[in-house]
Write a protein that binds this DNA or RNA. Structure first.
Ligand SMILES: [Mn+2]
Ligand SMILES: [Mn+2]
Ligand SMILES: [Zn+2]
Ligand SMILES: [Zn+2]
Lengths: 138, 138
DNA sequence: ACATTTTTGCACCAATGTTGCAAAAAATAA
DNA sequence: TTATTTTTTGCAACATTGGTGCAAAAATGT
């Protein structure tokens, strides 16, 4: 496991540090998406807040994690399981937010349907976020 | 125009105040979505920040405006053109964010496609946010 | 082990959003 | 209209979230 983590970091030309290993490990073990606050909570304040912010930014830039749109103003992050590259993500799955447990889950198998836009609009990225009750809370 | 505004407020059992009229008017005249900051800018600081926040909250609760998910942590609001009620919105259109002009537009005519979820998931609301280049920036 | 590059922690700042409470404004009653 | 009640506003104070510059610390390459 710790090998896998170091590999991911190496593959992305990132120095292997405690913070990055710990945070990446959290993502690998988390079934759902994580917010900055979740990460800070689970690391026992062993890292500075700023380090967490910068680590998340770096991971997004490298294509290791992607972020998920929300209606409240929180930024959520989840592992990219599609083969995303630095600077360009190819996630094309639906995200689900449970109204009960409040968790956000990547539905890797539910691919985003095509949407036809009016003339003149060029489509780059499509995000689909569905809310309701998840399979565990049902 | 000012009549229409007063009507909307009355219909929703809201006191008719300067602030609410001004903010509602902004929404009626805006082609795209508005953020809190946009509203504060256009009202020349004639209202307190808190009043703007509370007005937006109230409008959302009453079903006059709805909010739009974003990837950065900003909350956007737009007029509900579907017949939304207090406590329950029925917006089912796609939202478009332009990477060039950075405006968010309600594509009222592009309805959200059906998405089939895995067993155990109950679907309440679906948000589709598409980014790219809008018809004016093209 | 040493020099170089990268990352971290700290202090400080800025934007965003919330709450309690008294003053002001709007709606309702008289 | 004026008086009373209800609602809304403004202010102050606070919390949370996120970003920047810079020196210290850690990681990398030789
Ligand atoms: Mn995802
Ligand atoms: Mn809309
Ligand atoms: Zn759930
Ligand atoms: Zn545009």
């Amino acid at each position: 496991m710790m090998e896998q983590i170091a590999d991911i970091l190496k593959k992305n030309q990132l120095s292997i540090t405690e913070g990055r290993k710990k945070i990446l490990n959290m993502f690998l073990n988390s079934p759902g998406a994580l917010a900055h606050a979740d990460i800070e909570k689970n690391t026992d304040a062993s890292f500075d807040r700023v380090t967490v912010y910068r680590t998340l930014q770096t991971f997004v830039e490298k294509g290791i994690i992607h972020n998920i749109p929300t209606t409240d103003n929180s930024i959520l992050y989840a592992l990219c399981k599609d083969n995303c590259e630095a600077g360009h993500h190819h996630d094309n799955h639906v995200h689900f937010i449970c109204d009960v447990c409040d968790k956000t889950i990547c539905l890797e198998n539910v691919i985003i349907p095509e949407v036809k836009l009016p003339k003149g609009f060029t489509q780059k990225q499509t995000d689909v976020v569905i809310s309701g009750i998840c399979n565990k809370c049902k």
